[in-house]
Design a binder for these strands. Sequence first.
DNA 1: TCTGGGGTCCTAGGACCC
DNA 2: TCTGGGGTCCTAGGACCC
Length: 423
Amino acid sequence: MTAFGLLDVNNMFVSCHRVFDPSLAGRPVIVLSSNDGCAVARSDEAKALGIRMADPYFKIAKLCQANRVTVLSSNFGLYCDLSTRTMAVIAEHAPAAEQYSIDECFLDLTGMVEDLAVWCQGLRATVQRWVGLPTTIGTGPTRTLAKLANRLAKKSKRAEGVLDLAGHPEWVETALARTPVLEVWGIGKASAAKLAARDITDALRLRHADDRWLRQQLGISGLRTVQELRGIPCHDLEIIPDQRQSCTVSRSFGQPTGRLEDVRDAVVAFAGKAAAKLRSEKLVAGALTVYAATNRFRSDLPQRTLTACVTLYPAASDTRRIVQTAVAALERAWESGPWAFTKAGLLLADLVAEDAVPRDLFSPPPADPSAGLMQAVDSLNHRFGRGTARFGLASRTASWQARQDRKTPHFTSRWSEIPVATA
DNA sequence: TCTGGGGTCCTAGGACCC
DNA sequence: TCTGGGGTCCTAGGACCC
């Protein structure tokens, strides 16, 4: 019998801020997305006020003021660093683990002889003590059931952060009955609506749905999800992560713009970031897509998305080539018109490891004349902070830059911002 | 005034080939 | 009166995830 665990950090981004500012404990706190757009993390107290995931800030600003909610811009440097520490603690204690997202980790608990609930409590206590973050763990015979157990553990005070379905198969049926289909991992709004039309509203009913109908209506992924609810594993642990297939850098603009120069400026900056990311993972890209889009929420304004795809041959991670190619593609796709662009992005695809680039039969291996320069740029930026060395037009103060009005210090990743303790 | 960013997988349909 | 059948590859878009 297989046993999986799912550990996640409670309200991850908010909890990270609380590690460095204990005065936030017990108070309503939210963290906003890039551009200070939406609430992407809420403390329990903020959830209790009715603030939902992804609520646009401008719609809840009054509520926040009236209830003295602490509102923070996101600080990804901080979250990534605490995530790395958490995963390191887990790796030290769990037999096998797969990081699934910035705040979640699947565990393989198959064959463990200890009482699972007791062991999970021990791991939670260690993460709390060593990193300072509160966590929840659910277990089950499949990943989908471990997810489901995790969610229920969060809802129950008595569970104290752990629900062990793997060790208690007799609890599974009740757990399923208490889970709405929309809360099942892999079932989104579109599928939930189709299920509701058949009066399938909770996970227990979903478990008994007809396979042929499921395959036809929800596709192969939907059928797999239901198999997992039945206790039949369809997703294995992926301890060695697959090589990434694409890399995107995109941003919403601080101000809308219809000017090619502004969008080009943004694309140049994105190209620099994306190329550096590829180099840090020793990958090169064989294709590139640029796009610019208007605000999809403004149905009163004309809508337009410009896109351009180009192949990169030979595949590249050199910032200069990626910038040149992306800018040329953007200029070709550009249309002047009444458009107010509020977002642009760059997608690098067909990624291949640097040393596995396909070459044609007759040419000698290409010497890469820019490797030295790119290495120098990367190490400058690593040592002195992002943006120290950058290319051409890429500027830090352009009008397209995202808003970020409620910044907090990089407590753990910049020497100048490390907190000072006085005793 | 003000609505995130970065991914994956699956599917349907078109182009193309024999 | 009336245009095969079967296969592959590629792409765009949908659905979903955190």
